[in-house]
Design a protein around this nucleic acid. Sequence first.
DNA 1: TTACATGCAAATCTTTTGCAATGAG
DNA 2: CTCATTGCAAAAGATTTGCATGTAA
Lengths: 173, 173
Amino acid sequence: MQCLTYTTVAVCTTKIGLPWMKKKKLDYTWFWEQLDAYLERANLKHSKQRNSIIEYFLDLDDHVSAEDLHTYAKDQGATAGMATIYRTLNLLKDAGLVDQKQFSDGKAVFELNRPDSHHDHLICTVCGKVVEFENSQIERLQEEVAKKYGMRLTHHSLDLFGVCERPKCKGRK
Amino acid sequence: MQCLTYTTVAVCTTKIGLPWMKKKKLDYTWFWEQLDAYLERANLKHSKQRNSIIEYFLDLDDHVSAEDLHTYAKDQGATAGMATIYRTLNLLKDAGLVDQKQFSDGKAVFELNRPDSHHDHLICTVCGKVVEFENSQIERLQEEVAKKYGMRLTHHSLDLFGVCERPKCKGRK
DNA sequence: TTACATGCAAATCTTTTGCAATGAG
DNA sequence: CTCATTGCAAAAGATTTGCATGTAA
């Protein structure tokens, strides 16, 4: 599949866990700064593999499984063992830079945890298309619910499952 | 821990995946009827183990992992292989009587899918306490979001994570 | 020079499956 | 009787870990 324009936001996503088309090139300095800070704090180091795995992860820039990343890295000619992929993803998780999610497909997917934008998911159960959305009214109601039960909210996870109406959507999950 | 009154709704839950205190005795005839219908439709049978595993599941009546159920069944003096536990839970899932959820702890938890009531979760990340809630305003907004993206909603999953304010809550996850 | 990082293989952990024996209808 | 169910052990799939070796600071 080819994606010729890089202006749209959440198209060209056809299957959970596969490498998506790249969107527009984003600025990740905030990411690398936070990473540096974390590595220093934890007495850890940069390394060739670690850096390149992370770059590949940022390339894919969406719901990425360890296997996706491994495949993609290899396709790009990198030598990256599965163990290192996992170790790197766990490092990013520890650094608070990615979130790990289970879409109950067995394998976990990791996504970039942007400091500013949180998003929820609309997932088509037929074709696997994932659309991200954000709804401040829902967020506000969540805070209300949490307060009502005496809980201080740290984060949340909202996934809406359904069937999308794209003409393309015919296949199986 | 003892729970002496059976009138409250979601207390006495201390840790994800452990047997909770029983709430008030509920009427599960709707469940058994639906199960019977499914077994007949699928040319399957009742059996001693299957029935007792299901009864234990209904006893626990909350977010139950296969291991929880296995342990509980053994404690009650039943002979139930892990494989049968899984097979039974998958059967209930196929019958549409339970939902499977992944709280990203590695192991899946199963919960009763009551035909009427859907609930979301408030989860304390420190002590693991789970509270169920329902908020019709949130549900309505979800429908709006789905419509906006051209999707027909079938179900959803909303988990709010935070720290609860119970005096008891001190431990680690 | 001193940890930390890597790759491989082996180990874990959860869940599924093959197979011979048992049991339900 | 026939076909589904069970238990065990083995298999499978995802993730982690031990260890010898390589490498950043």
